[in-house]
């Protein structure tokens, strides 16, 4: 992957939030590239803007200014609807609190993104079952989220993230709510997705052990990007 163009180019990104009358700057002039096939860990203290940056890259929030080009598409120029479509096609999401739909069984949760893909019911079921097998949860597919442990729920979430075969996975503190053993398991799984399926992974974490699994580290501090090792 040495000379492939970067999958993501982030240029002069600015983002601030309004808090009543107050405008709170959160990201200052962020510029960096993410290589295709990268496993990037974004680190930094709480409140430094990691989630905000990740959301911008994943296309679920809008920057004030700057450009985010992903796979050649400037996603800051897309409309709400185009962006939704783009997310469904290109990004898989993993969150700290799993964010599964509680009234859907594991397999139904994994199937959910496929409803926007035009697959038949049978194909959806097959794809979802395959994704669950990949995270070693085939035997739990008819369980509801509340019947699963945290680690298992996060594996369902991973299956849901990869079922559409997106190029990029974003993970916001994916081990933040897990015990050590489950966390190790999740991280191992993400490593495998990066190695074997060549997914580009962008992971926000403040757990050094998690960060160690990544190939690249970047530090965010009070909204400024401090280059770590690259």
């Amino acid at each position: 992957m040495e000379h492939k163009p970067p999958i993501a180019e982030i240029r002069n990104l600015h983002k601030s939030y309004r808090r009543g009358e107050l405008i709170v700057p959160v990201l200052h002039d962020i510029t960096f590239d993410i290589a295709d096939g990268e496993f990037l860990a974004l680190m930094g203290p709480s409140g430094s803007g990691k989630t905000t940056l990740l959301n911008l890259i994943a296309g679920i929030d809008k920057a004030d200014s700057g450009v985010i080009r992903i796979g050649g598409t400037d996603i800051t120029a897309l409309s709400e609807t185009e962006l939704a479509r783009w997310r469904a096609d290109h990004v898989g999401f993993i969150f700290q609190f799993y964010n599964l739909i509680p009234v859907l069984k594991a397999i139904e949760n994994v199937e959910l993104p496929l409803y926007l893909s035009g697959l038949t019911a049978k194909e959806r079921r097959e794809h979802a079952a395959m994704a669950l097998k990949l995270v070693n949860l085939a035997h739990r597919m008819d369980h509801y989220p509340r019947e699963l442990s945290g680690g298992e729920q996060q594996r369902v979430a991973i299956a849901r993230a990869i079922v559409t075969d997106p190029a990029i996975l974003v993970a916001d503190e994916p081990t933040g709510d897990l015990d050590r053993v489950s966390a190790e398991e999740i991280l191992g799984m993400m490593e495998r997705l990066n190695h074997e399926l060549a997914k580009t992974i962008i992971m926000v974490t403040h757990d050094p052990r998690a960060a160690q699994r990544a190939r690249t580290l970047r530090h965010l501090d009070k909204g400024y990007l401090n280059d770590g090792r690259s």
């Binding site: 679920i60 609807t81 939704a84 479509r85 997310r87 469904a88 999401f93 969150f95 964010n99 739909i101 509680p102 959910l112 993104p113 409803y115 926007l116």
Partner: peptide, 13 residues
């Protein structure tokens, strides 16, 4: 609200 947010994240409108 969280359910709706995740559905929107996944591309539902």
């Amino acid at each position: 609200i969280g359910d709706y947010a995740i559905m929107k994240t996944l591309g539902f409108g």
